[in-house]
Design a protein around this nucleic acid. Structure first.
Length: 256
DNA sequence: ATGGTTGCCCCGCAA
């Protein structure tokens, strides 16, 4: 069973890419981020034609999240309980016996800005909520664009992406560690100790061609699922296509 | 990374 996370940076622009990738990769569950679509414009009929049911929470221009699954998603929850906010950044659903939480973490812009403070507050609220969610749902998958590179292996140049830089600052990494400490494991890291495997490359500076990336798109699993993680990776292929998203899909395979 | 690019909607803002 393949589970993936992909920041599509506008589903309006990227629907053909998503369709092509769903056909090629054949995931069972996908969390999308930055759909940038209001709900009445979500292409659920097109995706149903490919065999995927969709649940979504979007807004115009910014943010927006969705879960696609071959099985009907149940018990859909929009947002982060205890942290009301206009940003559409979280959607959760049960697929089969798995609880799926899909997150588009606040980017944070720069250290010291209001957006940075929002990022840390948002991550703390998510951590508190996930602690309960893990109790309710032992088989828990938390995936998304975390906008934090977990450690030095996850950045192309640790001298640039240091503890004074957005996406790699010490408070951001601490917030991610706190979230993992609720009992979650980075699916990719369970199987791979290597560095230099990235999921996001800036559109500028020909960053993808030069492989100047970061691994900020993660698929986390609860302790109960840990023994089932059979494979994990990042599919760079859609990043090579014409007019791509700046992110590539991050995936895990569960043996079940 | 002082740049630079993309997507959006209204031409600056977010990433």
């Amino acid at each position: 069973m393949k589970i993936a996370s992909w920041n599509v940076n506008s589903l309006n622009v990227r629907l053909p890419h998503l369709e092509q990738w769903l056909r090629a990769f054949g995931p069972d569950v996908v969390g999308l981020q930055e759909t940038k679509l209001e709900d009445h414009r979500f292409p659920d009929a097109a995706l149903a034609g490919l065999g995927y049911r969709s649940v979504f929470s979007g807004q115009k221009t910014y943010n927006g999240v969705a879960i696609l699954a071959r099985e009907e998603p149940r018990d859909v929850l929009v947002g982060v309980p205890g942290f009301e906010h206009e940003h559409r950044r979280a959607i959760s659903a049960t697929v089969g016996d798995l609880r799926i939480v899909n997150l588009y973490v606040v980017n944070g812009q720069d250290i010291g800005t209001e957006k940075y403070e929002l990022k840390l507050q948002w991550l703390a609220a998510v951590r508190d909520w996930l602690e309960e969610e893990a109790r309710r749902h032992p088989s828990l998958v938390v995936l998304g664009d975390f906008n934090v590179a977990p450690d030095e292996r996850d950045v192309h140049d640790p001298a640039v992406w240091n503890d004074q830089h957005i996406l790699t600052s010490a408070p951001e990494r601490a917030a991610l560690r706190d979230l993992l400490a609720t009992g979650l494991h980075d699916g990719y890291r369970l199987l791979h100790g290597d560095g230099g495997v990235f999921s996001w490359w800036d559109y500028r500076q020909a960053a993808f061609r030069r492989d100047l990336g970061l691994r900020i798109d993660l698929t986390l699993v609860s302790e109960a699922l840990r023994p089932q993680v059979a494979a994990a990776g990042i599919d760079r292929e859609p990043r090579t296509w014409e007019r791509p998203s700046d992110h590539a899909p991050a995936w895990i395979e569960l043996a079940r």
